[in-house]
Nucleic acid binder design. Structure first.
Length: 596
RNA sequence: GCGCCUGUAGCUCAGUUGGAUAGAGCAUUGGACUCCGACUCCAAAGGCCAUGCGUUCGAAUCGCACCAGGCGCACCA
């Protein structure tokens, strides 16, 4: 089936054609005036502008050709030239039944599916995940799931930061603490390595120390830079040591992402692009793209049309080491070879705009990226504290992601306890604190965190507010979860009572009708969200579905409805709402517990 | 200095090609449970869309100017 939007547009387009206005008009959108219409078409105004005629007459002519269309209960015209469409109730119900019997719940694939590599996550090895990594994971996971669900071939890669100066810093600090490790012996050769007896937690302590020391001590910094270069040149000891702590760190990172229900297809890092670096750089030189500048190797990427100065793209440092741009470029080579993607999406915080602009230009200029490959940069804003500044711990340090997740978890546990004491009759709330409580708390915390993030426009900064995110009232993750859980509960009870499902009947009330309209919008919204790369559209849609459902629930006693046909219709509709909401939540990376 | 982003209700934010009366949530005020999960629902109030000028039948949306805040500007990632 097609989206409601598309079906209606098809009718209206035909009417424009029949009225002699050509085939480029007739797209329809949800009405801005729900008191007047369900959907509207504004193209009579566009026609009037192009043909220099009266928009009202155009609208009238088109409207006249829509009067017999079975989709509409009424088609009317408002000045200066709005075409207002009111849908037929039977038509709506019919669509609902189609959605129910459709394997994809009425969701349709996008028009031109393609192969997309999504580069997100981007954690640094040997550093714990902190709140700065949150948005890349949450938004990236959503964009990946969305694109995949709508029919694209999508590869999600974590792109670990495992090959830059941070690695040299860690090696330097390890050497300072344990200079006698076998890795630092001059005669170290492969096979001599021994298991590093440090934990991920130790590593997470080592990096900040190293980073701080390097800032204050130039000698230490020089040593770290040297260590980085040695690693990149695969010095046996450094390389073996690196592999060793890589393993420790990656194991921990995998566990952290699993907590967040974030799942990468590949766990490649910057280091995996190393195999492509030499050939690539040689190509840059022989192709005449790269030249030396102040001892470093650079590619000029400035264009005459630039309004601002564009610094050259640095490929190799004056000491011979590779940089951020080098590994990003070599990774493009690798991805083109392995997947030949149509698009590569990069999800990083918006402060890296310039870097990616340089990398994309360089990739196109040097030809490592085919003409047809589209680079799409999806920058996002930062998550801030209530003071409007990046979220910090109480003592001013960077907040770890695990601490943030723990906060959400605890907040839910507190809520359960207080609601249990406030209303002892609410025995079902207590269920949340029994055997499955930890898993439920994780799911609710995740929902709160992810929805609180995604409901904001991707590119903007937002304020993290625990109480707000965790609230069961308002536009929050827990509210949506609660709504779906309540529907599940209703359906369970229906089953206990042996109630039957039946075909969905035309709406019996305005609220029910609104519910049908809302569910019919979901498919279009997913497509728009993909196109605009705006997960917040999905959040709005979910909230609208939940609100209308809750109103419907309040107005109707579903299980006690005497009219059996009506009741079975409602049960079917309930199952559809549940499935649609769960599907949308899944795209946002939010899992729904059976109870909560 | 140059460039990019942001500015919409008391607060946090939506606003999909320029369209009709700019929408939510929270907070505030008032109302609704003998009953399917009230962690719910209904209603009221709240706005010179930072400011000014322009483009046009029509601007929160497009252009110019200006103010305020954030971020970035080659050997970090």
């Amino acid at each position: 089936m097609h989206t409601l939007n598309r079906d209606l547009s098809t009718y209206v387009k035909q009417a424009f054609i029949d009225a002699g206005y050509g085939d480029s008009y007739g797209s329809v959108k949800v009405s801005d005036r729900i008191d007047l219409a369900d959907y509207q078409c504004n193209d009579a105004m566009a026609v009037a502008k192009a043909m220099r005629c009266n928009p009202f007459d155009v609208a009238e002519a088109v409207s006249a050709r829509l009067q017999d269309c079975p989709a509409f209960r009424s088609v009317s015209v408002a000045r200066p030239g709005f075409i207002n469409l009111r849908l037929n109730d039977e038509y709506l119900a019919q669509r609902m039944n189609h959605m129910r019997s459709d394997d994809n719940l009425g969701f349709v694939h996008c028009d031109n599916p393609c192969t997309i590599v999504v580069d997100y996550g981007g954690p640094n090895v040997a550093k714990p995940l902190h709140v700065g990594h949150l948005r890349s994971a949450i938004i990236g996971e959503t964009m990946k799931r969305l694109a995949r669900y709508l029919g694209n071939n999508v590869i999600g890669d974590v792109h670990l930061g495992d090959w830059g100066l941070q690695m040299g810093l860690v090696i330097t600090e390890i050497k300072r603490r344990w200079p006698d490790l076998v890795y630092f012996r001059p005669d170290f050769t492969e096979g001599m390595d021994e298991t590093l007896s440090i934990s991920a937690e130790d590593l997470y302590n080592i990096y900040p120390t190293a980073s701080q020391t390097a800032k204050e001590d130039p000698v230490y910094m020089a040593e770290a830079q040297e260590a980085t270069l040695m690693l990149q040149n695969r010095h046996p000891g450094h390389y073996a040591l690196w592999k060793n702590f890589m393993q420790i760190s990656v194991r921990d990172l995998k566990a952290s992402y699993a907590e967040l229900s974030v799942d990468f297809d590949t766990w490649y890092g910057e280091s995996d692009s190393d195999a492509y670096v030499n050939d690539m750089v040689e190509g840059f030189i022989s192709g005449g793209f790269a030249h030396e500048s102040e001892g470093a190797l650079v590619v000029d990427v400035a264009l005459e049309t630039d309004s601002a100065p564009m610094p050259p793209c640095l490929i190799r440092k004056s000491n011979g080491a590779m940089l951020y741009a080098t590994t990003d470029l070599a990774t493009i080579v690798q991805r083109v070879k392995d997947y030949n993607p149509d698009k590569i999406w990069y999800l990083t915080d918006s402060r890296q705009t310039l870097h990616f602009d340089q990398v994309f230009r360089c990739a196109k200029k040097t030809g490592i990226a085919p003409e047809t490959l589209q680079f799409e940069y999806l920058p996002f804003g930062t998550m801030n504290g209530k003071d409007g500044k990046p979220l910090k711990t109480r003592d001013g340090g960077v907040m770890r992601l695990s601490d943030l997740i723990q906060m959400m978890h605890d907040a839910f546990a507190d809520k359960c306890r207080s609601s249990a004491t406030a209303d002892s009759e609410q025995s079902e709330a207590l269920d949340g604190m029994n055997a499955e409580s930890d898993e439920i708390a994780r799911l609710v915390g995740n929902a709160a965190l992810k929805f609180g993030d995604l409901v904001n426009h991707r590119t903007k900064n937002y304020v993290f507010d625990l109480d707000k995110f965790m609230s069961f009232n308002g536009k929050t993750g827990p509210y949506l979860l609660y709504t779906v859980v309540r529907i599940q509960s209703l359906l369970r009870k229906a089953e206990e009572r042996g109630l039957k499902y039946g075909p969905i009947l035309p709406a019996a009330s305005d609220t029910e009708r609104n519910l049908m309209l809302e569910l019919n919008k979901c498919s279009t919204i997913l497509l728009t969200a993909l196109e605009e790369k705006a997960p917040n559209y999905i959040c709005e849609s979910l909230f609208n579905c939940a609100s209308v459902f809750n109103k419907f629930y309040y107005e109707n006693r579903i299980l006690d409805e005497a009219d059996e046909a009506r009741r079975s219709s409602w049960l079917t509709m309930l199952s559809l709402i549940r499935d649609i909401m769960k599907q949308q939540l899944w795209i946002l990376g939010i899992d729904v517990p059976e109870k909560m």
